[in-house]
Design a protein around this nucleic acid. Structure first.
Lengths: 253, 253
DNA sequence: CGCTTACTTGAGTCTGGTCAAACGGGGTGG
DNA sequence: CCACCCCGTTTGACCAGACTCAAGTAAGCG
């Protein structure tokens, strides 16, 4: 919730041709014309600090973003302060698609680490759909994938036990981070607090803490200050009774 | 779970030009060329019985459907039988978009009432994106809307109390049914069992039953055999601490 | 007419929540 | 440089919302 300036990093802008995400195995490749368009679609870059609130529920955002670097999450808050974290954001993820298509955002977005974002002009979306159908397809694909993740999470929150829930979420985040390159330097760590975990899974911080102890005692994870190290991903997945989710080469913009 | 034959109703097929959904205020209108394409995109119609399992998790479906009539729901099942209902289907909703874009369906779909579905050929999707960008946009819009509903439901399952959860879900279903014309004849009733409610909201049938009694005693609803009558939608929404969700004119295919 | 499905209701139990207190590290102002 | 504070984490004691088990009713169907 800290308020800090955001830095406009348009100067040292990453060229789409050199996009670090493109190098990852997980993403599909653009054709040259697509690449050219995406490059023009991109308006600039933005660097934000840790703990910055990027978008607020109810706002009407003029932009669409892609995460280039860093972690974030999106969430809703009830009147009395109860918070539900809906999903996390890692490199390659879109921010604000709902807001770009509908009237307004129905959730807020906050950063967990310093982030770098690509900024796209919402106004150019019609052109994208008109002239680059494959990119339009990709956008639908990404929305469908977000839906899939929500399906898995909803199933966990609704029907799994505390231990299973936590194991599920950590396994999911581990896998997403691996694929997106979010763990490049820092080996297998996830930058969240126990409070975030609790608010994602519909449980209290206290009980979350006690459950983490159990997972740690089983050598599945190790908890650090504001971060979680995954020691045994297979063990986590079987503790969660979860088989993972996969979906071939993903697009990104 | 009853297994019945599905009837191919291609014979008495509804022409897209006469689509009953188009008459509803909620949906946007097609342009003539769009209408022509959609008409060719539609391969036929299918009528299915109540309690029929339309799609199974893990399957690879060749079709995409739109609900013309009736109620359904999509869900996941854990190995040990625990079930999580993810969302409900009312007229105008798409079925199988995830399956059409990704490798396989990651959830199952079942009917709550007899249903009529329009069948679309998954293989024609590229043509849709190529030649009818506005329809491609609509598909993304629909995926984003599904995501929005999931956001609301996840928030309820994770952070609302039992009473609030149930009030939320009934209010949501009531509103969706109203807008989609699913309540045309039968005034304000929702065709689900308490078991469905429980499996949607992550609670037990017993506790669900007791909570429904409370809502009924407050004159917000009346419960019938296999169905729920909403008596006071505003009361329900305030009991849920929920403001509803709206999003202008929705597209459909 | 017996079977199954849906709904009720009560009793007892337990997972997970609340309350409270304490610790350690990092940042900040005096 | 130090005192203080805040945040994130930890732990214990107690509480309660929600679950399980169990049994019974009513309606629908073959």
């Amino acid at each position: 919730m800290q308020k800090r300036n955001t830095t406009d990093a348009s100067k040292n802008r990453t060229k789409c041709e050199d996009c670090p995400l493109a190098k990852l195995h997980e993403f599909r490749e653009f054709t040259p014309p697509e690449l050219k368009f995406v490059s023009s679609f991109k308006q600039g870059e933005m660097a934000i600090d840790k703990g910055h609130t990027l978008l607020v529920e109810g706002a009407h955002s003029a932009h669409l973003y892609t995460v280039l670097l860093g972690w974030g999450f999106r969430y809703k808050i009830l009147e009395d302060g109860r918070r539900q974290i809906l999903n996390y954001l890692v490199p390659g993820d879109l921010i604000g698609l709902q807001g770009a298509l509908m009237e307004e955002m129905q959730h807020s977005v906050e950063s967990l680490t310093p982030m770098t974002l690509c900024i796209f002009a919402r106004g150019k979306l019609p052109e994208l759909y008109r002239n680059y159908p494959s990119l339009g397809y990709d956008l639908t694909w990404m929305a469908a994938r977000e839906e899939q993740i929500l399906d898995h999470t909803l199933t966990s929150v609704g029907r799994r036990t505390a231990l299973e829930k936590i194991a599920y979420l950590l396994a999911l985040l581990y896998q997403r981070a691996q694929k997106s390159g979010a763990m490049k330097n820092s080996n297998s760590y996830i930058p969240i607090t126990q409070h975030h975990l609790a608010d994602t899974l519909g449980m209290s911080v206290v009980h979350c803490n006690k459950t983490l102890k159990t997972l740690a005692s089983q050598k599945l994870i190790r908890w650090g200050e504001r971060e979680c190290y995954v020691l045994d991903i297979d063990g986590l997945m079987s503790a969660a009774k979860w088989e993972g989710m996969d979906a071939g080469a993903r697009p990104f913009i």
